[in-house]
Design a protein around this nucleic acid. Structure first.
Lengths: 356, 356
DNA sequence: TATTTTCTCGTTAACGTTACCGAACACTAT
DNA sequence: ATAGTGTTCGGTAACGTTAACGAGAAAATA
């Protein structure tokens, strides 16, 4: 009583029971909205819970409960050209590790973003097994939409990451707002050059027809710049290749032709443009803006060839998705609406502190 | 056996005990490096732990252990001029909330950053009570150094947030690298203006003599720009006031005199400069760069008056500090070295997605 | 009235870990 | 021989919560 350390006991289910003159079993029934409690006692218990602002001990809860939740994660596999999906997978792995002690089982399915059949295959597997939820990074729009509809019929929760598509998932979307992403690139561009500047937009990727979302970025970029009324001369060039030698040829002709002041690469392939100007130092380098914190991109950023990388924390997306499912299934929170992911600006002077 | 759901039981302390033919008590003694275990059984148990890659269930552990850890947090109190410390406090509160179910008790002490006596007072209180660790946001350098030395004599763990000072704390520093922060501002400046540009650096704060760390930012800024050899004309002006009317007068004279192309405000007071140009639209607005994601600053960012805000997530700093102590005391990890906090660039086009 | 059903609620094992208590044994000092 | 002192280990309560089990009373059915 006169001791220094105040025995700050947690206010728990037992204390509620004592105050309400009931057993902990009854309190538990009230807390979990189960039946077998009379209206009067239910109210009494609820009042005490509210009055003392009872907060359940989530660690105790997850210890007690035996989970049987299975989650499927469907994302593109990492290719040489895009380490992007590796980052995403890293975040997912971190999330899986944290969820494991709660008894949540997770299975990751990778598909080839250049081969729709691989996607159909893994989605079929997911449907056939007994999953409770599925995290999807959509590439093939129609096929994904058909898939989520099947999921909903089977009472399988769905959640998108990385890019959104028209058919809504049950748990929403975690990722950047693509239009704003484009606008931000436009915003940066407007600081770099003045009236009449020549701007070249580059779409670089094999199978460009599958990358509709790139158009959303471009639209944001163009509308932002056009609204400034600075008579920018904007051109779009598609380079539907992955191999450097093929891309180089295309770059050579289009850059020679238009001698742009700013180069805007609409996806994570900006490193090949970096390499181009690194190999051809005789050409005056324009300002270069691109996407994603990949090793190759950061390399050319650190060399001073790429000026800005716009990044969207792919690892956080994967991690958040799993964290969200954890909260949905175990904590029974229902956070239905997400804020879009932050859009980060990385330059030669802050890249070394990015991500932790 | 032929059922679909694979009963993926966790591999726990009991399983180790069974395999080693000992009791769980013995396994626990080995795991926690306590005595009363013979060399032979200790080795046997350790081998099994390694072989099966046993990972303890941290939630069960924290349920079982009765903690008696008390943490003191010493930060400046929020003033009207800087909502900055409120953000920091928000992160700390979030951390406290998460730590509470583990039985960690936290007490926050606020001091007046314009009155050294208030700092001495709260530091004295911390020394007198029985804390295990103290989180400090240093402002008064000498006094803080004397304080941490006292702490170390009393075996009290220390950790700095927000700015580092020469006398090392036992658990390191969580915050941005100030020199790099200045360099980043220089980097952005270099994209905005060309040769011979006029640049005005503004230090705005009452009691400027207490803000030595601002010089570190300025040094980073200057060296970056000077290395470009673009003959920038850089000037520094101190405005040792907090009240807008006083600051306005000073701004009026110095801006009239030098008509700068870029204004670099070295701390979070950039909103008063924003207000100045909002009130005096007759003056041509230079590019404006400032710090910190405060409501007032973001307001002028959204109006297009402030161009760049450089931010360092004060809330994350506070949160991280507590999270770190949790890991140090409860999980017994010893992460000794921190990566510096990320430095974020915020413009009119990405501020709405910042922080989550 | 006797039997069954329904509604409430208390009791208890379990989740994985920690830490205390004391048993069993070997050794030393009387 | 007895008493005392270590050393090594097993057993078990406890942490806060969940959920299965079953007891007792009231209500419905026969």
């Amino acid at each position: 009583m006169m001791s220094d350390d105040k025995e700050k006991k947690r206010f728990g289910i037992k204390d509620i029971a004592k105050l309400a003159n009931v057993s902990i079993g009854t309190v538990d029934r009230v807390l979990n909205n189960r039946k077998d409690v009379s209206g009067a006692t239910r109210k009494k218990v609820k009042d005490i819970i509210k009055e003392y602002n009872y907060q359940p001990n989530l660690y105790a809860r997850s210890l007690s409960v035996k989970n049987n939740i299975k989650i499927s994660v469907i994302i593109p596999k990492t290719s040489l050209q895009t380490g992007y999906w590796q980052l995403c997978l890293d975040g997912i792995s971190k999330g899986i590790q944290e969820l494991e002690p709660f008894g949540i089982q997770t299975e990751v399915f990778l598909y080839d973003q250049e081969d729709v059949h691989t996607f159909l295959e893994v989605s079929e597997k997911t449907i056939k097994s007994h999953f409770n939820a599925v995290v999807i990074a959509p590439i093939f729009i129609e096929e994904t939409e058909a898939f989520v509809k099947k999921c909903h019929r089977k009472k399988l929760q769905t959640i998108y990451i990385n890019s959104d598509i028209p058919t809504k998932s049950t748990l929403g979307y975690i990722g950047p707002d693509l239009n704003s992403t484009g606008r931000l690139a436009g915003n940066l561009t407007s600081y770099l050059v003045g009236t009449n500047a020549k701007i070249l937009i580059l779409n670089i990727a094999k199978g460009l027809e599958n990358y509709k979302y790139l158009d959303t970025k471009i639209e944001g970029y163009r509308t932002y710049l056009n609204n400034l009324n600075k008579n920018f001369r904007i051109e779009v060039v598609d380079i539907p290749y992955n191999e450097y030698t093929e891309v180089e040829k295309e770059l050579w002709t289009s850059i020679r032709k238009s001698t742009p002041d700013v180069l805007f690469v609409t996806n994570s392939r900006v490193s090949v443009v970096g390499r181009f100007f690194h190999d051809h130092q005789e050409i005056k380098k324009p300002y270069i803006i691109g996407f994603d914190f990949l090793e190759a991109n950061v390399d050319y950023l650190s060399k001073g060839i790429v000026d800005f990388l716009i990044c969207q924390r792919p690892d956080k997306q994967g991690y958040f998705a799993l964290n969200y499912l954890y909260r949905f299934f175990l904590l029974k929170e229902n956070v239905t609406n997400f804020k879009p992911m932050p859009i980060d600006i990385i330059t030669i002077e802050n890249y070394m502190f990015y991500e932790n």
